[in-house]
Design a protein around this nucleic acid. Structure first.
Length: 327
DNA sequence: AAGCCCACCAACCGCGTAATC
DNA sequence: AGATTACGCGGTTGGTGGGCT
């Protein structure tokens, strides 16, 4: 047996509330309270569902509600509580006098999530995105990598891609680079941060990032298998205490991006479709690099992660960008 | 000026569960 | 005790307005 509707759908008005309806509802509630939402519209002379009346009252008409912008302090509270409670909007809203769960949820989805992403923080886990990559690369056993890595990246990709499409930035790796120069032959020059104001480049790059991430996840799995299988892979080595994953050949491919095929959100993700498997062995060029074959490496050591490319232009996430995301 | 895109947010939907019969 | 009803919550949708091309 299905759930019985709270009202007769045919006889109720839907959509935006008029000032007259607001007045009727407010007047009725001021006199009689909010005891039975099913009866309120009938008694108040409204052709609305009781549920609709309740939402209108709780989210808009209640006299104790604030309607203005969220303050810095309120935003800070939301972010802090969200890091602990997750999407428990009603609990978070309870800590913000005059704000509803709907307010908080909307503000989170439209502003705060992007703000955090722009700061390089994953809005789901509240960890820096570099930590996520690090965890994917080091702490997961390879059979899990395609699923969990894609799930984690899936949570972040929309905001990341949004940011990238709004403003080209170059990838910096100051201290990590210093560390790497002593251990890696393809160390980048300090003039690596270059900008090309070329739309084609941007468009290509976005596609390459999408595809590159998907390929990276898949490739790391393959490399691990190669290594375990006995053959020494030049792409995967761990003899210096680092775990190096070579993503150099993951940034380009003539084929369409599999990103959409494996597009996922959270746990609903099913990574690594058959198409991805089939594409694994295809030749990949690196046309956007001045010198093809340069590497992009994710390096992990003591939990820190570095991603760099020796000569290709990447994105510069400066502190200004992080604090003032272009959204 | 018109069309398009995007951000915002009010409102809706459906599910879980507490309350009531 | 089980069925029914209502409420609360979180996810999603759709209308609107502003900015950009």
């Amino acid at each position: 047996m299905g759930r019985i509707p709270c009202c007769e759908k045919d006889n109720v008005k839907r959509g935006q509330w008029t000032p007259e309806e607001d007045h009727k509802l407010s007047s009725y509630i001021a006199q009689h309270g909010t005891r039975n939402w099913r009866l309120i519209p009938k008694h108040a002379g409204l052709q609305r569902c009781g549920k609709s009346c309740r939402l209108r009252w709780t989210n808009y008409l209640r006299p104790d509600l604030k309607h203005g912008q969220f303050s810095e302090a309120e935003e800070q509270t939301i972010v802090t509580l969200h890091s602990v409670l997750g999407n428990r909007w009603s609990v978070i809203a309870a800590q913000l006098p005059g704000r509803t769960d709907n307010d908080v949820k909307n503000h989170w989805n439209t502003k705060l999530k992007k703000k955090l992403s722009g700061m390089g923080i994953d809005p789901v886990t509240h960890k820096p995105i570099s930590h996520l990559i690090s965890e994917i690369a080091t702490t997961l056993s390879p059979p899990q990598v395609p699923h969990l890595a894609e799930a984690a990246l899936g949570c972040f990709k929309d905001e990341m891609l949004h940011l990238l499409t709004k403003k080209r930035i170059g990838f910096q790796f100051h201290q990590q680079f210093t560390n790497m120069t002593s251990t890696h032959n393809n160390a980048p020059s300090t003039s690596h941060v270059k900008h090309e104001e070329n739309n084609n480049y941007k468009d290509n790059t976005i596609e390459k990032i999408k595809y590159g991430l998907s390929r990276a996840i898949k490739e790391s799995d393959k490399n691990w298998e190669t290594s375990v299988g006995g053959a020494t892979s030049s792409n995967f080595h761990d003899n210096t205490g680092f775990s190096n994953y070579n993503f150099a050949n993951l940034l380009n491919d003539e084929e369409g991006s599999p990103w959409n095929q494996s597009l996922c959100s959270g746990s609903a993700c099913t990574a690594g479709g058959g198409g991805l498997q089939q594409q694994q062995n295809k030749k990949i060029s690196n046309e956007n690099c001045e010198d093809s074959g340069k590497e992009i490496v994710v390096t992990t050591r003591n939990g820190s992660t570095t991603m760099f490319n020796s000569d290709c232009v990447l994105w510069d996430i400066s502190s200004d960008d992080l604090m003032n995301p272009m959204v």
